[in-house]
């Protein structure tokens, strides 16, 4: 099981390649086209990262999130959530880039294999930019009222953060 997870990347890519080859896809050409799309994605998010990274770096350096974490720590400790992830949880439903920047700060500072670093990665990997997605869908459908959709989606996010902290504590705590 362990070595299987270690080999996730090559095994997965190999399996996808095999499937594509069986369907007669030109592997090299398709991957080149996909890679070009990836470059465009990175070029597109760089401006957002350039605006958001300094702000998040500033916020973390100012010590305010620590203050927030300390204020919330009685609550977060009871729930078993690492206090360092408070900022990430606040940003996650609003902005994907800001959450990515906050998570990478946590991962860099606490280490990728620390409990806090892993919890941050699981949190961001198992959630979406809720408010943004909801705004896009309702705007595209031309529906002005959203009834219970946003509260339910935010509750799902909360469940996601709590379960991320819980499963990480079980696996690596």
């Amino acid at each position: 099981m362990r070595s299987l997870l270690d080999l996730t990347a090559p095994l997965l890519i190999g399996a996808v390649m095999l499937g594509a080859a069986l369907r007669g896809v030109n592997l090299y050409e398709a991957m080149l086209a996909g890679t070009r799309k990836g470059l465009r994605v990175m070029a597109d998010i760089l401006p957002a990262l350039l605006v958001l990274f300094p702000a998040i770096r500033l916020l973390r350096a100012s010590g305010l999130p620590e203050l927030l974490g300390r204020l919330l720590s009685p609550l977060l400790d009871t729930l078993g959530v690492p206090p360092d992830t408070a900022l990430l949880m606040l940003l996650r439903p609003i902005s994907g880039s800001a959450a990515l920047a906050a998570a990478s700060e946590i991962i860099r500072q606490c280490g990728p294999d620390s409990l806090t670093g892993r919890t941050a990665a699981v949190m961001i990997g198992s959630s979406e930019t809720t408010l943004y997605v909801a705004a896009v869908y309702f705007a595209a459908a031309g529906v002005r009222r959203s009834r219970w959709a946003v509260p339910a989606a935010l509750c799902a996010d909360l469940a996601c953060f709590l379960s991320s902290a819980w499963i990480c504590r079980i696996l690596w705590g």
């Binding site: 997965l12 890519i13 996808v16 390649m17 499937g19 594509a20 896809v25 592997l27 398709a30 991957m31 080149l32 086209a33 996909g34 890679t35 799309k37 990836g38 470059l39 994605v41 990175m42 998010i45 760089l46 990262l49 350039l50 958001l52 990274f53 300094p54 702000a55 998040i56 770096r57 500033l58 973390r60 350096a61 100012s62 920047a101 990478s104």
Partner: peptide, 30 residues
Amino acid sequence: AVLEGTQEAVSFCLVLTGSVCLWSGVMELL
């Protein structure tokens, strides 16, 4: 922190570009 943040944004983007591109190549195959 502010100016460090800009450098960090660029290096983060550069470091991430390789693997994001590889995965989007795999997604294209899929």
